Simulated assay, not measured.
Amino acid sequence: MPITTREWQLAARPHGEPTPDDFRLVELERPDPAEGQVAVRMLVMSVDPYMRGRMNPGKSYAARWEIGETMKGGAVGRVVASRSPAVPEGALVLADAAWRDVAVLDAAHVRVLPELPGIPPSYHLGVLGMPGLTAWAGLFRLAEFREGDTVFVSGAAGAVGSLVGQFAKLNGAAAVVGSAGTPEKVRWLTEEVGFTRAFDYHDGPVAELLAGAAPEGIDVFFDNVGGEHLEAAIGAFNEFGRGALCGAISGYNATEPAPGPRNMFMMVTKKLSLRGFIVGDHADLRDEFTTKVTRMVTSGDLVVRETVREGLENAVDTFLDLLRGGNTGKMVVKLAD
Rank of each mutant, 00 (worst) to 15 (best):
I67R: 01
V332T: 09
A207C: 13
D21I: 11
S299A: 00
K270V: 01
L285I: 05
M267N: 13
V76Q: 09
S162N: 08
G227H: 11
A62L: 15
F145K: 06
S299M: 00
R242Q: 07
A39H: 11
G251S: 13
S46K: 09
M55T: 03
R64I: 09
G178C: 05
M1Q: 14
L320Y: 01
F237I: 07
A174I: 08
E184Q: 10
T269N: 11
A168V: 02
P257R: 08
R141Q: 14
G247M: 12
S84E: 00
L25N: 10
R146G: 13
G311D: 04
G226R: 06
V268E: 14
G68T: 06
A283M: 14
E89A: 14
G138D: 09
L105M: 04
I67W: 01
Q9H: 15
N263G: 00
M266C: 10
V110H: 09
F240M: 14
P85K: 11
E288Y: 00
A233K: 08
D281P: 03
I278Q: 14
Y201V: 08
A107M: 01
Q9P: 06
M267W: 08
L312H: 01
R324M: 10
T298M: 10
G217Q: 04
L285F: 03
E313I: 05
Y50K: 07
V47Y: 01
L116T: 03
K292N: 15
P120H: 08
P121C: 12
P88T: 02
W188A: 04
A157Q: 07
L128G: 08
R197N: 12
G247E: 11
T269R: 09
G235L: 03
A98I: 00
T290Y: 15
F195D: 03
W99E: 07
F140G: 00
A180C: 00
Q166M: 11
E216V: 02
V151G: 05
V79C: 13
I67Q: 12
E144H: 14
I234D: 06
H109G: 14
Y50F: 06
V127E: 04
